[in-house]
């Protein structure tokens, strides 16, 4: 059995590479986009606010798998064609940005009005107030839900199999079907668990760092 596991590791690692690409690109792009959307959502611009609310409703209100299929299979019918990886990235980033937008919005709104007022009386501009006073406090508040969302993403990456991308999950399934052996499932499980373990520890440390002022 050990020999078998060693024999499938290279293929599974190749699958991990696709999974990791989807994961990291989604995180790197959707968090800033989510933050930007959150600022729009709490702004005074009513058109922007309503548009973002609608966007969030659509992205959270439909399955991510449907969105993946839409960007890959439906858009070519109106002449927009993406390769599988690009389509997957668009769907993941837009979907996760909607969730991050709501997390950041809640975080921003949790900051008491008095913080803005104190900054105002000290002559701070909107940008200074956000950068120096509000956001550092928001980051602490949103860490637990962001951590949650990040760990969900590790597992959601497996949805790219519907676009026939050879991520960890699809590679595993192919191996199981080829060899009539369920061992690859167990190995894949260990891979996912290791990834979430690393993230859990990382976020625990971040939370500890950011909560130093409230103990």
């Amino acid at each position: 059995m050990l020999d078998y596991i060693i024999s499938i590791i290279p293929q599974m690692l190749a699958g991990c590479q696709v999974t990791a690409q989807v994961f990291f690109l989604t995180i790197i792009l959707s968090i800033p986009l989510g933050l930007l959307l959150a600022f729009g959502r709490v702004s005074n611009l009513s058109l922007v606010k309503h548009f973002i609310a609608f966007y969030v409703w659509v992205m959270r209100g439909t399955p991510l798998m449907l969105q993946l299929l839409f960007f890959y299979f439906a858009l070519p019918s109106v002449g927009i064609r993406f390769d599988d990886f690009t389509a997957a990235m668009i769907a993941f980033v837009l979907n996760y940005a909607a969730y991050f937008c709501e997390i950041f919005r809640a975080g921003i709104q949790a900051i008491p009005k008095g913080q803005y007022e104190a900054a105002h009386t000290l002559g701070m501009s909107y940008v200074q107030t956000m950068r120096r006073i509000v956001l550092p406090q928001v980051f602490r508040i949103v860490l637990p839900p962001v951590s949650n969302e990040t760990i969900t993403l590790v597992k959601d990456t497996s949805l790219v199999y519907v676009l026939a991308m050879n991520d960890l999950m699809r590679t595993t399934r192919n191996l199981v079907q080829r060899d009539f052996d369920i061992t690859p499932f167990l190995v894949a499980g260990v891979f996912y668990l290791l990834a979430t373990l690393v993230l859990t520890v990382l976020f625990e440390n971040l939370e500890k760092h950011f909560s130093r002022y409230d103990q």
């Binding site: 008491p112 008095g114 913080q115 104190a118 009386t121 000290l122 501009s125 550092p136 002022y213």
Partner: peptide, 22 residues
């Protein structure tokens, strides 16, 4: 207005210190 307003220091009922700073 910002420059003029910060000629006045203000102390609030709820203190409003920045909790993430010493």
């Amino acid at each position: 207005a910002r420059r003029i307003a910060c000629k006045m220091g203000m102390v609030f009922q709820q203190f409003n210190l920045f909790p993430h700073m010493t």
